[in-house]
Amino acid sequence: MAEGLRLEEVSVALEGRVLVALDAQVAPGEVLTVMGPSGSGKSTLLAYLVGTLAPAFAARGRVILGGRDVTGLPTEARGIGILFQDDLLFPHLSVAGNLGFGLPRAPRAERRRAIAAALAEVGLEGMGGRDPDTLSGGQRARVALMRTLLARPDALLLDEPFSRLDAERRAATRSVVFATVRDRGLPVVMVTHDPEDAEAAGGCVVTV
């Protein structure tokens, strides 16, 4: 039971109205898909999980990650990574700089090796020096994924992560993301309104 991500009777309300309520267990390597129309509070749930809920919201419940209660912790101490529909690569840093931002402190040579390996894993060998703005959408999405994974999170949140990509790249990027997180045994919560995303994820689906 200590394994994975547990959402214990979580509910988020705004001005007394409950937007989303959920009680769920996500095992390592499993994807929990949360579906619903826009404005249904899907992104509010992710904000709650990652710890950036605006003060106007009232939240109840607990978030247990690997047996650790992270409910009251600030975002940077939770060990929860997040990918948005935009890649949000830092535009002032190079591709390698973005990956380095995610990497915990380590000797320089080790960092360089880790960054090179991460680039190679998603087929972007030798692109470290590039300006992120010169990459294609699919390439940027893969860099964002590796940046998140290099921080060694214990869980991953996906906020409509493929909706900005064109149909061709969407399928390819989707399979890269799901294969990578399954490899690493990360519990994943994904919100989306695309049924294909849910199907490809293959886990439980809850509708809010």
Partner: peptide, 22 residues
Amino acid sequence: DARYATVAAALGAGPGRTLWAV
């Protein structure tokens, strides 16, 4: 876009590092 701050924090950066480095 405050999501940059969320991303930086989710990568383990505290508020100070997010301010100065991002």
